[in-house]
C-alpha cells in the first residue's frame, strides 16, 4: 500500500441549486518519496485535489488513507495534528504573514506545534541557510523579492520535516528564471525523501516529474510515468 491511497474520492460543491462535481471518483496510489505534477485546464479540480490531500478540505465520498490511516473523516483538531506533523504547503501567492519577519514566518508552524524557542531558533537558522537567505532573517515579506518570498514559504513548509509537500502553482507568480530556482529547491527536497506534489500550468515544469497526472473536468484523465 502506498503512502497515499485515494479510493473513489468525490467532491461536490453546492451553490444554491447547482451542483459542481469538482472531483469525480478519483482513485490514486502514491508511494513515499514520489514526485508528481498535476496538470489540467482551469477548473478541472487540481486545487480541490490538493486541498483534500492536504486535509484542508474533505471528500464527500470515498476514502483517503495517509500512511495507512483513514484521515479524510478525522475530527478537525486531529486533522490539524496531521497537517502540522506530516504535511507542508506552498502557495502560489506565498501567504507570508506581513507583520512577521522571514525568520518568524518560518518559525510559525513550530510555534503552533509547541516546539521550544531554542530549538526553533536553531532550525530556522538552518532552514534559512538551506534556502540561501541567511542574511534576510529579519526582513519583512514586503522587503523581499517574489523569489525570496517563495523560498521563505518553502522553508516554512518544510520546517516540520513533513512527509508530504504540496505546492499549488508555486511558480505561478514568478518569472521563468526565479521559477526555475524555486523548482530546483522543491526537487532537492524531493531528493531528500519528501513526497512532492506540484500543481502547475507550465508544461515545462510538468514534464520534469517522473509521474504526471492529468485532470479533466474532475476526472483523472491520465496518469503517466516516465
Amino acid at each position: 500500500m502506498g503512502q497515499i491511497e485515494l479510493r473513489a474520492v468525490d467532491r461536490i460543491f453546492r451553490i444554491g441549486d447547482t451542483r459542481v462535481h469538482a472531483l469525480k471518483a478519483i482513485s490514486l496510489s502514491i508511494e513515499a518519496g514520489e514526485y508528481l505534477t498535476v496538470m489540467g485546464p482551469s477548473g478541472s479540480g487540481k486545487s480541490t485535489l490538493l486541498n483534500i490531500l492536504g486535509l484542508l478540505d474533505r471528500p464527500d465520498h470515498g476514502e483517503y488513507l495517509l500512511e495507512g490511516r483513514e484521515v479524510g473523516t478525522l475530527p478537525p483538531d486531529q486533522q490539524a495534528g496531521v497537517r502540522s506533523r506530516r504535511i507542508g504547503f506552498v502557495f502560489q501567492s506565498f501567504h507570508l504573514v506581513p507583520r512577521l519577519s522571514a525568520a518568524d514566518n518560518i518559525a510559525l508552524p513550530m510555534m503552533l506545534a509547541g516546539v521550544p524557542a531554542r530549538e526553533r531558533r536553531r532550525r530556522v537558522a538552518a532552514a534559512l541557510a538551506g534556502v540561501g537567505l541567511e542574511d534576510r532573517a529579519d526582513h519583512r515579506p514586503q522587503q523581499l523579492s517574489g523569489g525570496q518570498r517563495q523560498r521563505v514559504a518553502i522553508a516554512r513548509a518544510t520546517i516540520m520535516q513533513p512527509a508530504l509537500l504540496l505546492a499549488d502553482e508555486p511558480t505561478g507568480n514568478l518569472d521563468r528564471a526565479t521559477g526555475a530556482e524555486v523548482t530546483q529547491l522543491l526537487e532537492a527536497l524531493n531528493h531528500g525523501g519528501t513526497t512532492l506534489i506540484v500543481v502547475t500550468h507550465d508544461p515545462v515544469m510538468g514534464e520534469r516529474a517522473r509521474r504526471r497526472l492529468l485532470l479533466d473536468d474532475g476526472g483523472l484523465a491520465d496518469d503517466r510515468r516516465r
Binding site: G54, L56, P76, D77, A80, G81, R83, S84, R85, I87, F89, H95, V97, L108, P109, L112, A113, R156, M160
Partner: peptide, 16 residues
C-alpha cells in the same frame, strides 16, 4: 481571514 486560513494550513487546531 487569510491569516487564519494560513494558520490552519500550518497545523493550528481550531482550539489554538
Amino acid at each position: 481571514t487569510g491569516e487564519i486560513g494560513l494558520l490552519k494550513a500550518l497545523g493550528a487546531a481550531p482550539m489554538v
